[in-house]
Amino acid sequence: MNKHIENRDIKVVAIDLAKNSFQLHGVDANGHKVMGKKLTRNKLKIFMVKLPPCLVVMESCSGAHYWGRLFQSYGHEVKLIAPQFVKPFVKSNKNDAADAQAIYEASQRPGMRFVAIKSDEQLDIQAIHRVRSQLVKARTAAVNQIRGLLLEHGIDIPKGRAHVLRKLPGILEDAENGLSGRFRSVVHDLQEELRHIDQRIQRYDTQIGQIVR
């Protein structure tokens, strides 16, 4: 089969995404495999822009929404599948070709739930929420570390960020509580880190508020 006929016959392309190489599994209208190849990032773009419109299926993983929007702009229909729905179809001899085939097989199952392709704005919101979530964890860790360090010196601050923010300045200024200058400096650094994290979280909260209006 020459390349022209091969491309014309492809009705579904399953793509196993990676950073630099991409495994393709092409199937015709009868469900027969007619193409299997691995392409680099640039060659994938060239191949897909020349390929007649077809159904493209991929796992909903890192980069999938970018590729999905790009392939849609080439005229293809694109469907994304959550990785947990692909895993049951992966053969025991796991490799890129087997993964691409598993993506195709999962896409053909009746009732399969597909993931909607996110817009740039939706990805922006997702990124903000992910970073904000990490900052909240870092803030909680800083609060707990401050409380733990002070407790080792017999100073107990009740649980909660508000208690730490309210009581810590007085503790650091109290010259009679037995804390060394070195220790005060360490805790002061944590206090500044906590303030910086708070500012970043507030900035992201403002951005989220502006987006959802």
Rank of each mutant, 00 (worst) to 15 (best):
R8K: 15
S119E: 07
V186M: 10
F183D: 10
C61W: 07
V143E: 11
A29P: 03
A18E: 01
H188D: 13
Q101L: 04
G178H: 07
G26K: 03
L123A: 13
S73G: 05
L55C: 05
Y204T: 15
E77N: 09
F85C: 01
K33E: 11
F85M: 00
I208S: 02
L24R: 10
R213V: 04
V56D: 00
M1S: 14
I46L: 14
Q199H: 14
H65P: 06
K118C: 09
K79I: 03
L172E: 10
Q101P: 08
L44E: 01
F114E: 12
L17P: 01
Q210K: 09
H129Q: 15
G68F: 00
A116G: 09
L179G: 05
I146T: 11
E152F: 00
R203N: 09
K38C: 14
R203A: 15
M112V: 09
V12E: 00
P53D: 12
P88E: 02
I81E: 09
L51G: 04
I171D: 02
D198P: 04
L51F: 04
T140H: 02
E59I: 10
L150W: 06
D16R: 02
K33G: 07
Q207S: 08
A102D: 13
H32W: 02
L149R: 01
V49E: 13
G111T: 08
V115F: 08
P53K: 07
S62D: 08
R147A: 01
K137T: 12
N95L: 01
A127N: 10
A175H: 07
G111H: 02
